[in-house]
Design a protein around this nucleic acid. Structure first.
Lengths: 151, 151
DNA sequence: TTGTACTCGGATAAAATTGTCTTATTTTGG
DNA sequence: CCAAAATAAGACAATTTTATCCGAGTACAA
């Protein structure tokens, strides 16, 4: 489990990155995603549903159905995925957990954390999914694709 | 719950900061800490025990017992507290959750995350508890002390 | 010495997160 | 039309995190 995101969120990111490696009109089934990404089937299904409801993915029922990006990958940021799954706590919560921490009543780390947080935000919001996907040199699921020959 | 730390860790930080506001030879009871910081009694007790075992705190049993810093506050960093409670995942885990992510097999965010991570590390490791405590302008528990008059 | 106020540590409960199962519904192709 | 393969969705189980309880030990003071 990473520190910043929930596991759901990690799975969501991995799935979207995988979808971004395919043509937008191509459907990818949950089965394929879970097999390649090693994610529990029904857990991922729920995550994909959530992303669909938030408008990030498009789903198609029935034979030869599956999921695809609802928008071009050049138009989706990591931050959108995170916000869709984990909400916007990362940008709002006090790093020390003081509920009353705010601009007018800051904790001891408030200003410094703001800087680090903005750096993370830039990291997550300024890079689109297609850039990220193209930079994936050889994560596990890419090698898998190369081995089987069939995405 | 903050994003970066577990709740245990937040409580630990708050408690240590509170202790740092008192003379090092002065004992503070769990009861006082939980009352002022609004933390569940037995939960905090366990956290303080953990910090004691890690050598950050000193505990004194018996009547008029309590907890105090094991070292001068000028000698303790936030990062030590976090490491003691949450371990060192923050500095080691892949931000996207890929288990195989490493220098030689990096994920798409690896290098950029390293920069942000180091910024967070500087934030947590370069500032000592006494500096932090002195910067606490008026978090909840400080106003409480001022109101009751008795720390 | 004895009572009291405290920590210690194990057991347990509650809540949140993660993972599993089962049934329905939708779509396509034969 | 019907069977196969896919998503949709609710119920349930396991795990992890958070919180509570209780008996025991310890040190001080009257």
């Amino acid at each position: 489990m990473s520190i910043i995101f929930s596991r759901q969120c990690e799975y969501a990111i991995q799935a979207v990155l995988y979808l971004a490696l395919h043509p937008q009109n191509e459907k990818t089934s949950i089965r394929e995603l879970t097999k390649v990404l090693k994610i529990p089937y029904h857990f991922l299904a729920k995550i994909l549903q959530k992303l669909t409801h938030k408008g990030l993915l498009h789903s198609q029922k029935g034979l030869a159905g599956g999921f695809s990006l609802a928008r071009p990958a050049a138009n989706i940021t990591l931050f959108e995925i995170i916000e869709a799954i984990d909400g916007n706590g990362l940008m709002h919560n006090c790093i020390l957990g003081f509920p009353e921490c705010s601009e007018s009543d800051p904790c001891a780390l408030h200003d410094q954390w703001l800087k680090s947080r903005d750096g993370i935000y830039q990291l997550l919001a300024n890079d689109t999914i297609n850039h990220l996907a193209s930079r994936m040199k050889k994560p596990q699921y890419l090698t898998e694709i190369l081995q089987t020959g069939c995405p």
